[in-house]
Write a protein that binds this DNA or RNA. Sequence first.
DNA 1: CTCAATCGTGAAAACGTTTCCAAGAACGGC
DNA 2: GCCGTTCTTGGAAACGTTTTCACGATTGAG
Lengths: 346, 346
Amino acid sequence: MARTQPTSSLRPTIRDVAAQAGVSVSSVSRVLNREPHISPELHARIMRVVDRLGFEPDSAAQALRSRASNTIGCMVSDISNPLYSEMVNAAEEELQRAGYVLMLGATRHAEERETAFISAVRRRRMDGLLLFAGDNTHKDFTSALATLDLPCVGIDREVPGAPSVRADHRSGGFEVTRYLIGLGHRRIALLTGPAAVLPSTERVAGYRQAHVEAGLDVDLDLVRPQVHGSGIAFSDVCQLLQGPAPPTAIITLGTHMLASVMDALASNGIRYPGDISLVCIGDTDLARHATPAISTLTWDLSEIGRIAAKTLLERVRDGDQAQDTRPIYLPTRFILRHSCAEPRAK
Amino acid sequence: MARTQPTSSLRPTIRDVAAQAGVSVSSVSRVLNREPHISPELHARIMRVVDRLGFEPDSAAQALRSRASNTIGCMVSDISNPLYSEMVNAAEEELQRAGYVLMLGATRHAEERETAFISAVRRRRMDGLLLFAGDNTHKDFTSALATLDLPCVGIDREVPGAPSVRADHRSGGFEVTRYLIGLGHRRIALLTGPAAVLPSTERVAGYRQAHVEAGLDVDLDLVRPQVHGSGIAFSDVCQLLQGPAPPTAIITLGTHMLASVMDALASNGIRYPGDISLVCIGDTDLARHATPAISTLTWDLSEIGRIAAKTLLERVRDGDQAQDTRPIYLPTRFILRHSCAEPRAK
DNA sequence: CTCAATCGTGAAAACGTTTCCAAGAACGGC
DNA sequence: GCCGTTCTTGGAAACGTTTTCACGATTGAG
């Protein structure tokens, strides 16, 4: 009873438990951590007191001593992007199931926020890091990440020394482009995310490959990487449509961007699929329910989130063993709807 | 040089900083925490070493000693719901700006996950809690929350003893219903979220009020609270349409649910606004770009997230001072598009 | 029956901060 | 020039765990 004050109304500590159970602090710790070599009686006695007191170990103290916080960082550019939020949702579910908590860091595409988040990850001794698609030209961030020495998994992103889970955007881009070329299109516009983000790069690569295989040249003016958040797609499309050689088909991201594209078509008096063909990337309610419904390239977002979380947890548990950093690819699927047709005879 | 090992390649601690600067540990702490009464020379000397070593204080140790983790919990039923993800996004931005990190807990409407999250909040000594709309009949959760004694803010949710930030769903429901009644509708279906969630309750209240003011009875069969996630809206709408007295107008949530409703209309060969009027709640790309475009009740999601975060931070800083728990209401706005008409003469 | 290994437990030393306490130096009023 | 404040700093005690070390009690092999 040395220094066990009346427990007061404060939260009980492991000391209180030990005192009330008449055992040592280390025994309580061992029971709570399911270590072997514990007599059943001791276990029962301690657990009874734990339940009675409603004891919950303090994570700060645990993290300090054992250097594990049961926390996973999740760096994503924009959580309000439905593509991301669905992946995050699935990942969080998986992490929660394993007893981890997810720390969200939204970077809004600013490198300073990326490096700031890395710092938070380190200071808080997070156990792992989920890195969502982002600009891969951020050098400060890349080097900050390299010094981190922590289990990471990239999602639609390449991370040096870490595995990544990705949709096969290259094949997707290839398939969609080939389909349009097959319909007879020769001028296909591609509106995608910023060039320095993996899915866009890959998509463009697939787009080129389809052209190459068909023996066609690529007009780079038709490839329009979009700056995030800005409604620039609208003016980009207008410019293309009003240019000297307008595209006969458009491939565009399905989230937000599709809406801008539809606006641009409407305000130029152009209708799909009659005047122009339209394909979008990433299925949305809008793509499904637009009239006519829009053909879409899609993939399983939840599955990506789940796999990423599982992969990360494996790495967290195995320490530095797991050195398989090969990317895991998920297939894309092309859903044919009614937004494409052969190009109008000129 | 007592116990300052060669600093090795490990992360430097405050001890290393103190040793290298030739000062005491407490001085370093004071400088880092911007305490008053520090000579400029000392400050400079310490900061130089801090920068050189790249010292970053360990949050676990800080949390343990000072009982503040610079962490805010965020409990939300489903982060992939765009309504929520936009609010979370805005809140996170605000918190990040203030140096806090957001811990995400997705409950997926299960009370056990809610209570589990409360436990995590307590164990991790989080500094505050953002509570998004959820089932208010969960008694275990409510009592767990009550024992928490932590600054909280409810978002579209009532939290005992805490302020809340909400869209004025009651007025919104009232306005939309009155508008439809004004067009001549007498049988208006209302498809909304689960009854025990605040926005739905309020919405239904506004819906009733509009009926009462118009001297109309409410047919409760037309009010259809929807279970989350399930595509039940589809069958609900089919059932209503095929019933003896089908509605002449439908008010529905804009997220996901709207798509199901549109499907149901289509598969029953019913068109809006000719055969039936349609209004949705929560603006989406789909509502804007459907043909015809759908009249929508909307409000500022980002603003709600921002205000909630700011309010919470105030409470976190002021300790138990701030006892103003009055809800903060944000107005809704009704956007008239082309989805409504007078009911067909019978 | 002995000796080494293993079991089960307790005491105490970490972990890296903040904060309390103390003490010398500088300062201002008289 | 003396004395009470106020500055400025250092030393050491927390915070609540886990983990290392130690030690007696069992166990099993020979």
